[in-house]
Design a binder for these strands. Structure first.
Lengths: 224, 224
DNA sequence: TTTATGCAATGACTAAAGTCATAGCCTCTG
DNA sequence: CAGAGGCTATGACTTTAGTCATTGCATAAA
């Protein structure tokens, strides 16, 4: 994706005039990352405004025994980890290029701050951007504390299916596990259990939702 | 707490001139809540700017089987659930007066929006306020997914002790359970286990930390 | 074709958390 | 002082999740 197009997609930059967008684009440098290469580590200081141009960036935290929880996957035209950009703190999580590698545009934080001074309306839109993330995080807390693995996997399948009745799983079990907060083995077994109970059918990596209503029920912990 | 004092404590209002603060204070109405009385329910539309004047407000979510997870306790001089105020959405959680009841100041959202238009710098501070909450939420996700009940309880004790070696538990086990994401029984048992292992001593509701280093280790899931 | 390599499936086992039931201890009140 | 109500403590049990080890399958490299 081209720099200006990517910047245009970002919620808090969208309303800016062309010349400003161009100025930001020129102030940034492009960085290419190989698959699984670090973009930044948890607790590292802020790089600045980071925008995904190609591929995808995975944001995650790691526990003391090495298990990872994926907090989000950012695709082209999304900015990454705005939090430190706005509050000046360090990164609350790590980021790396997803399996296919990625390229990102990085604009130094001081350049971005100058920009916010000259265009205070950015802050208003930034609030919206943060609000969206906060709601996602709250959902995540809810899911993790209130729902079983079964429910979280059902929920994942519904999202992954995106309305289609039959679809191919884009992620490995390992990746799914990291997204729903469990481990590879358990995803495999739970997927098997959902198949056993006739809610879905699985052929290779293709999942067919046989009983969408039941799957929704399971996703909201309404049993069955 | 007096209206103006309370408003002065709020991160995103602090820098406003006196006359504006007074105007906000006058635009609001004061509401008193009995212990456990609802302030708002999850998914309800935004009331506006809500500021705690007396007592404390508990923010929480409820799961399908009635179990509650406390997301935060707001004390006098804090604003409650800014999220819907800024993004116009509904409340992502419920709120009620904590055990001692509370009084709050409520300023209608449209009044607040006028204010933001005339004082755009509010947005910049609002970003900071949201950022603080986001970091707390991220910590919570981390704790819930990566740490055991034992670790979360140890962490709670460290925070509750606030540096003191011996202190009285202000919350009931029920309340603690809700804050660390488990149930009453398990808090009781885990507290017992910590006592058994000699890390803390418990006399009635008074907890004495015998081995602070070990407690910290447990809190970060470093075993022992 | 053979051989790695990565991933999935699954059974067996362990650990952690949650549930249920019971008993005991304060404190307040009649 | 007796009894009720609100908490806490604890044992027994169930369920859920996590860990470990093994097998099999497919694709990619030798």
């Amino acid at each position: 994706m081209e720099r200006n197009d990517a910047l245009r997609r970002i919620v808090f930059l969208r309303p800016l005039p062309d010349d400003v967008i161009h100025a930001i684009a020129d102030a940034g440098r492009v960085q290419s990352l190989q698959a699984r290469e670090f973009l930044f580590a948890e607790n590292a200081p802020c790089l600045g405004l980071v925008v995904v141009l190609e591929g995808s960036i995975r944001i995650y935290t790691t526990d003391s025994r090495g298990r990872e929880l994926t907090l989000g996957l950012e695709r082209p035209g999304a900015s990454v980890a705005e939090l430190p950009l706005f509050d000046g703190g360090n990164y609350p999580a790590s980021a790396e290029a997803d399996k296919d590698g990625a390229t990102v545009l990085i604009v130094p934080r001081n350049r971005f701050q100058e920009l916010m001074k000259s265009h205070p309306e950015i802050a208003i839109h930034a609030v919206r951007a943060l609000a969206i993330r906060m709601r996602k995080q709250l959902q995540m807390i809810n899911a993790q504390t209130m729902h079983t693995v079964r429910a979280r996997l059902a929920s994942y399948l519904i999202t992954a299916g995106n309305g289609r009745q039959s679809f191919k799983l884009a992620d490995t079990n390992e990746s799914i596990a990291s997204q729903i907060g469990t481990v590879r083995d358990v995803v495999s077994r739970t997927l098997g259990a959902l198949r056993e109970s006739g809610v879905i059918a699985v052929t290779g990596r293709t999942v067919t939702i046989l009983d969408p209503a039941a799957l929704s029920m399971i996703a909201t912990s309404g049993e069955v």
